[in-house]
Nucleic acid binder design. Structure first.
Lengths: 155, 155
DNA sequence: CAGAATAGTTTGATATTCAAACTATTCTGG
DNA sequence: CCAGAATAGTTTGAATATCAAACTATTCTG
């Protein structure tokens, strides 16, 4: 093993160690940043749920439960909380009255945008000083991770 | 706004969207991979705790609680579970008998290494085809994120 | 050496999660 | 068209996780 590949190995270890811890911290500061704004009653999990419900596509309860891997009962409880706090509404689907479509209220949309802006800021900081080809590499790395996740979880 | 910076903006959005979702999936497959091995009784949270206790430095309960931002009571409960399952031991510090030092049992060390190996594999997949300078960039990006986290959470 | 400070545990209340039973609605084969 | 199967979401009851505050044991300090 020569000096260069040793150095690369060290970099691998740095990256691996770093990744293990970073996301936890991100989750935490996401929540604390949101609480500094005027959304004081939102947890990181609820933020995640608001993000998943999203701005445009009126997902159903089942879709959201599948995406987040929550049981239907758990999601119902979470949705009750977010509805009570005024971030989401349930809309009964008129074509198929078994289905509930989920939408963000205007308050929910504000929260969504604040959260999204935070992520944008994070990515900007992360990639500051990078040029177009560096960014392409970064994108490639993330796609590789997605592929890996796909393989491991059986696509 | 010209074509090139539009493209970069799109890449930023891709990266931002991708990051939001990847962590959750990684947590999930970490847990499911570990359950495929002979550590069937471990949750993602417990894995995280075993990782934090680590191999070498005999952290105290308070240190671990601070790192993971858990209350002391919650951590006590978690440690009871991991001790019952045979992954950790509590060692009463002889210099200061108020303190408990936490160590992994041999079973705990096996789990730690399996988890670590998983992360290594993830990083290898992520960076496959990257050369030394690409990897340096990647490292830089992660350090930028750490800086950002430091700034936001007040260092 | 008395009392303040610290490390960790226990306790009681609250919140989260799940699976299973349940309600309401739609689909489907005869 | 209709009976029963299938589907979407809610309710329920039990198990687990979490927190803050009270508590125990130990060490530090003036």
């Amino acid at each position: 093993m020569n000096a260069i590949s040793d150095e690369i190995k060290e970099d691998y270890n740095f990256i691996s160690d770093s990744l293990v811890d970073i996301y936890d911290q991100i989750m935490r500061i996401e929540e604390s940043e949101i609480k500094k704004s005027h959304f004081k009653d939102i947890t990181a999990k609820e933020l995640h749920l608001v993000h998943t419900i999203g701005l445009h596509d009126r997902k159903t309860t089942s879709e959201v439960a599948r995406i987040l891997r929550l049981s239907k009962g758990t999601l119902t409880a979470n949705l009750n909380n977010l509805e009570r706090k005024g971030y989401i509404s349930r809309i009964r689907n008129q074509r198929d009255r078994r289905i509930i479509n989920l939408v963000l209220t205007s308050k929910g949309r504000l929260l969504y945008r604040a959260h999204y802006a935070f992520h944008q800021k994070l990515v900007e900081q992360c990639l500051k000083g990078f040029d177009g080809s560096d960014i392409k590499k970064m994108k490639q790395a993330l796609m590789n991770v997605e592929d890996f996740i796909g393989e491991v979880s059986g696509r």
